[in-house]
Design a binder for these strands. Structure first.
Lengths: 206, 206
DNA sequence: GTTGTAACTGACTGGTCAGTCAGTTAAAAT
DNA sequence: ATTTTAACTGACTGACCAGTCAGTTACAAC
């Protein structure tokens, strides 16, 4: 095929996008560069103009996907500074729920779990920029609720971790909802999560 | 090397054990049969006396690991039928916590997450025999607590799911405890989990 | 002992795939 | 128009590895 009229520097992005699909489907070792190339409408050699080898491509793909998901989280999470902290938490929780169940996020999570233990620096980057950041945000809201007397007096960071664990695990399960005994509609799951989490957080009925 | 004096039918087990290590470390596509053979002190050909191909070996390995973990769960969970349901739950939770953080369980969980989506029948088997079974057990305890008036009146199955999500996610995180901002000792994490979960479950202070 | 046989070996094969590079082409520079 | 540049191509290579099989060895049967 004749070289497609080159677009300036979108090439690497197209390749990364294709890499995301193939690595996401088959894992690092299972994915083939020929398939990535084909999906990106590019010859295999072109990949090597932008990435030194398969591992590096994988790394860059993960890295950029994390960056991207951070950006999308940032725009999604822009908080309406409501009066009611519970409402604020519900808002955050709902948006997080939808974000986590994005195909993109699902794939990222699977790769983080399944492949990232061989890339400790990437794991650290993920833990720091995604998990820790999210936890801080959640903790700050919990803290606000405590300060205003809406929530029970607990460690906000611990509560935030519980929140993440609950949301994360259930989001993973929704991919096989029937198998794992989840309700039919994902909104019901969210409602259950919120109900449970808020019960743990609210002050005992005085 | 001369053929090691053959033991009767432990061979497949040795091979499965070696397969567990290699697949656990490198994934299905990344693991090499030569390495599995070497680890099992066996020539590569021997593997093919017991398993038709790599995929089948992987399947069998997963299958037998699930079976094995069920057995170990069963012996571990044999419930002391305490008076106090909370104590019973604490006992179950503690044992579950230790079980989940076993290297063997960790690896199994990673493989389930990372590779099993291409083996739907195995995923179903896992979901059914491990997840669902555990959930039923937890739910039955919660139900007992509700019946005896110790716990708040909630759906026991939902509570059991929350329990699993909490324990599972935190167990995964403990593998990189520092990265994910967990306390230094895993026992502290367990205490936090129990504290949070039981707070959600106990009746509001009357 | 001798024979039978099933477990086991490991060199070999054929296919696959990461990575290379000499050549081609679109577009910018002059 | 012509030259220069750099993006791009895809056939090729060499390594690697799943799977094979002719031959070997430990043990059992007699």
């Amino acid at each position: 095929m004749s070289p497609s009229r080159r677009k300036p520097e979108v090439r690497p992005l197209e390749i990364l996008e294709a890499a995301f699909h193939e690595f996401g489907e088959h894992g690092l070792a299972g994915a083939r560069l020929d398939d990535i190339a084909r999906r990106a409408n590019v010859a295999k050699g072109t990949i090597y103009l932008y990435f030194p080898n398969k591992d590096a491509l994988f790394r860059e793909m993960i890295h950029s996907t994390i960056i991207e998901s951070l950006a999308s989280a940032e725009t999604t999470m822009a908080s309406a500074d409501d009066e009611d902290t519970e409402a604020l938490l519900r808002l955050l929780a709902t948006r997080w729920w939808h974000l986590l169940r994005t195909p993109r996020m699902r794939t990222l999570l699977r790769l983080v779990q399944g492949e990232l233990h061989r890339f400790p620096d990437l794991m650290a980057f993920y833990a720091d920029s995604v998990t820790a950041r999210g936890r801080r945000l959640a903790a700050s809201i919990v803290e606000r609720g405590i300060a205003r007397g809406e929530f029970r007096d607990t460690d906000p960071v611990i509560a935030a971790r519980m929140f993440q664990g609950l949301w994360l695990s259930h989001a993973m399960w929704t991919e096989h909802a029937a198998l794992f005994g989840l309700p039919d509609t994902d909104d019901t799951v969210l409602a259950e999560l919120l109900d449970f989490f808020l019960t743990a957080l609210r002050r005992p009925t005085a």
